[in-house]
């Protein structure tokens, strides 16, 4: 029963996807091109964010800690 409910919901969701992206009016081969392209783009976005975001975050943390953190009170006092 519950499985059927989820299945209905998924098919409804797919229908909404078809309507909003206009795949509803595309011919099957166009639809498959469109889906492939969209999936590729999404996969690439996810993959590249998986690869690059951690590196960028680490670099950013290092950079900002270089400015705001890592200074001892004594150096501040020396400056003034």
């Amino acid at each position: 029963m519950d499985v059927k409910h989820i299945k209905d919901y998924l098919s409804w969701l797919y229908y909404q996807y078809l309507l909003i992206t206009c795949s509803y009016v595309l011919e099957p081969w166009e639809q498959s091109i469109f889906n492939t392209l969209l999936l590729t783009i999404i996969a690439m976005v996810i993959y590249s964010s998986y690869i690059f975001i951690p590196i960028h975050v680490r670099l950013a943390v290092e950079f900002f800690s270089g400015i705001f953190g890592g200074q001892h009170e004594s150096t501040v006092a020396l400056m003034s």
Partner: peptide, 16 residues
Amino acid sequence: VLTYMGYGILTLFGYL
């Protein structure tokens, strides 16, 4: 926005 996007997709496929 979604409507314009839909027309955009259809136009691209039209060109194809």
